[in-house]
């Protein structure tokens, strides 16, 4: 039905979006690449000049980088593991015939709508605080010494907070996938005497595999950028114990005012994110045909 006229009209309708997104991508990226090869400190702007690869080597070989990379991996993998496994279990539970499925869904999805600084501060103060937090109270009740969660296990604590934020997303998507499963197939398997675990691993899990892939990829994109939670809980500390890659770049740029090194870090982050993105695009692209 596409005539020549409607095609050119379509091009006109699409072009504002394309131009804006192109600028939004190309201009900052071009600038980051440029600055990543420049010596540029906001506090000392006179000493500007080409820096060669020194910003990259400063960033990559700084003692903080390795730690930040490991912390980022722990954060992403920890949250993925928790949300996918718990998400599957909770989705299986909610999918059973129960009374009040609607309200249960609403309660489970709620944390997803809470803004990250709120989630982080509520957990930090009202749960993790060793003297006034609820976990502290629980420890006291059990006769255990107080434990400073964010001081002694900062990364695990942040993983907990972020997993709480993303568990609803995983659960909801896995539940949606589960609800499209053909019940007759399961009943047939049941009649043939397949035990529940076998039914789960041979029928339910394969059916959910696509949804699991999507959850993992989309969450990874968002988790690689986790920032607000770290800023308001530990500010990357103690020391650098909970400094992730985005947080390290933020520190270089807006705390050390070292634009060049931060830009080099930005390029590293872009490359890492693109590796994930390639897989995500493949998974989503399949659905377009």
């Amino acid at each position: 039905m596409a005539t020549q006229a409607s095609r050119s009209a379509a091009r006109l309708m699409i072009s504002p979006s394309v131009i804006l997104l192109f600028l939004w991508m190309a201009v900052p990226l071009g600038m980051v690449i440029y600055y990543s090869f420049r010596r540029y400190r906001l506090l000392n702007p006179d000493r500007a000049g080409w820096a060669g690869w020194s910003n990259y080597s400063n960033f990559v070989f700084s003692p903080d980088f390795g730690g930040a990379l490991v912390n980022t991996l722990i954060l992403v993998l920890g949250v993925l593991l928790l949300t996918v496994i718990l998400g599957i279990l909770i989705a299986l539970l909610i999918d059973q015939p129960i009374w009040g499925q609607g309200p249960v869904r609403i309660l489970v999805i709620s944390p997803f709508f809470i803004m990250p600084p709120v989630s982080a501060l509520v957990w930090k103060n009202m749960f993790f605080n060793p003297s006034n937090g609820l976990f502290g109270e629980l420890f006291k009740y059990l006769g255990m010494p107080p434990y400073d969660f964010l001081g002694q296990a900062p990364l695990a604590s942040i993983v907990t907070i972020v997993a709480w934020e993303w568990l609803p997303f995983a659960t909801l998507i896995l539940l949606t996938a589960l609800q499209s499963l053909d019940g007759e197939q399961l009943e047939a398997a049941e009649m043939d005497g397949a035990p529940p675990l076998k039914r789960f691993f041979y029928i339910v899990l394969p059916h959910m595999s696509r949804a699991i892939t999507v959850v993992v990829l989309i969450q990874t994109i968002f988790l690689l950028g986790i920032f607000g939670e770290i800023l308001v809980t530990t500010s990357g500390g103690p020391g650098t114990a909970s400094t992730t890659l985005p947080f390290l770049i933020f520190k270089k740029a807006l705390l050390d005012f070292d634009v060049g090194t931060a830009a080099a870090g930005g390029i590293v982050a872009v490359i890492l994110a693109n590796i994930v993105a390639i897989f995500l695009m493949k998974a989503i692209g399949k659905n377009l045909d």
Partner: peptide
Amino acid sequence: LMWMLSTKMMPAAGVLVP
């Protein structure tokens, strides 16, 4: 469409400086 989505993959921290 895929290209548009790919612009979303740019990590915010990466382009914070510019």
